[in-house]
């Protein structure tokens, strides 16, 4: 049998710039007939894979996972966290720490020099960010969009 058409993509080790259009992609959106949930890995993803696996891993936690009544993180929180991670296009950013929250949310934490970001992805998928610099009091930003978080990561990286 002769193939009708063949497309092959083999990922080079060079990191590619992310495309603008991918920033608003819903990674949980079922755009085909498939039901089984997967996150497809675009060729340009490198560092993103491990934190995304950690985010998905938090969904496997049982209820009361922290023995203080902690709730299993919600898929909406994971969707937002993955959206944020996937939207970061800066080359070689600091890796986020992925922390499950007892509320059913997921927190992404970054630290570089004197600057810190704590991004709380709430169970309903909304976002709250705490921006900290040195010993100054943190600046709280409620109802942040994933795009705002990407700008804050740029601020963090400028440290």
């Amino acid at each position: 049998m002769t193939a009708d058409a063949v497309t092959i993509q083999s990922q080079p080790t060079m990191r590619l710039e992310s495309r603008q259009g991918r920033q608003n992609q819903d990674y949980f959106l079922r755009a085909d007939t498939q039901g089984v949930g997967v996150i497809k890995l675009p060729p340009e993803w490198t560092w993103q894979v491990e934190p995304i696996k950690k985010v998905l891993g938090t969904l496997l936690l049982p209820e009361n996972w922290d023995s203080y009544g902690g709730r299993t993180p919600k898929s909406q929180a994971a969707e937002t966290a993955i959206q944020i991670i996937a939207s970061i296009t800066q080359a070689d950013p600091p890796r986020p720490r992925v922390v499950p929250l007892g509320t059913g949310g997921i927190q992404l934490e970054w630290k570089k020099g004197q600057r810190e970001l704590e991004v709380e992805c709430r169970p309903d998928g909304s976002v709250e960010v705490l921006k900290i610099e040195g010993d100054a009091e943190g600046e709280l930003c409620s109802a942040c969009l994933p795009a705002d978080v990407v700008r804050l990561v740029a601020w963090l990286m400028a440290a």
């Binding site: 049998m1 193939a3 009708d4 058409a5 063949v6 497309t7 092959i8 993509q9 083999s10 990922q11 080079p12 080790t13 890995l41 060729p43």
Partner: peptide, 14 residues
């Protein structure tokens, strides 16, 4: 070339 880091492919057959 070293071994590929990742591979994805689509092949169509009539």
């Amino acid at each position: 070339l070293p071994e590929p880091e990742k591979v994805s492919m689509t092949v169509n057959y009539l």
